[in-house]
Design a binder for these strands. Structure first.
Lengths: 124, 124
DNA sequence: CACCTGTATCGATAGACGTCAACATAGACA
DNA sequence: TGTCTATGTTGACGTCTATCGATACAGGTG
């Protein structure tokens, strides 16, 4: 339940985060960069996880209780399993507050992923 | 080798394309939206595919011959397999020119994926 | 035509993954 | 303490997938 090691794809640098990789269009990814970035994409590559992630991301305050988002057509253990995967991928963090566990999306992670898909500024 | 049915995630609309889904943060994805968008993320969720895609995307003109990008540490059949997957996901198109086959990235697809990861414009 | 190079397909195999039922754990409350 | 609800973990099962060697196909060149 701890968030000790999260955001494996971004390194905090004081006033923001440094993305793991350049835009996909800037230069060919190295093996390491690809390994790192692929983890993120892979985490979002399952429909159930994508729905869970979207549910959290679009929820008020960028966070949601599991009970608020678990209506995605699979069993409760499966929901828990997918939330764990999203957490391991650095896309979500979690925190227990009393009876409920809240998952939160890190906006900077979203932004970094968006930049990955940006066209390189080639004299636009 | 035909590109008859490509870009399953975007619908051409004359002067551009209409993305399949709203930004992840706008509202919870429906099951159908998640199914569609997850296919894209899944395609990029493999390190080898990500390297191939990045190699094509960053290559001059947004296109590259297989021979230019196949040095990613796996066998030739595996490269071919992954390129096919990327094509099926609508991320690449291919065209044979003489002896060689060229793969090309559709810029609009990249842009659409980027928008998926955009923060909803909440009175920014 | 025969031959060579570049790319795709086939068939097999090992490992990863999504899913569930059963069980475990954490906190609230009586 | 016991019980109830919310969530996580375990173990098993079937399916998907990444990978390879062998082979097929396409196009150029002689």
């Amino acid at each position: 339940m701890s968030n000790a090691k999260v955001l494996p794809l971004l390194e905090p640098d004081g006033q923001g985060v440094t993305p793991c990789c350049p835009p996909l269009t800037e230069r060919p990814f190295t093996a390491d960069e690809a390994e790192t970035a692929a983890r993120m994409f892979k985490a979002l590559g399952d429909p159930v996880r994508l729905r869970l992630f979207s549910a959290v991301a679009s929820h008020e305050g960028g966070e949601a209780c599991v009970c608020d988002i678990s209506d995605v057509g699979v069993s409760q253990p499966t929901v828990s399993h997918h939330l764990k995967k999203l957490k391991e991928a650095g896309l979500l963090t979690s925190e227990r507050r009393g009876t409920w566990v809240y998952y939160r999306v890190e906006p900077s992670v979203l932004a970094a992923m968006g930049k990955l898909l940006t066209m390189a500024p080639t004299a636009a």
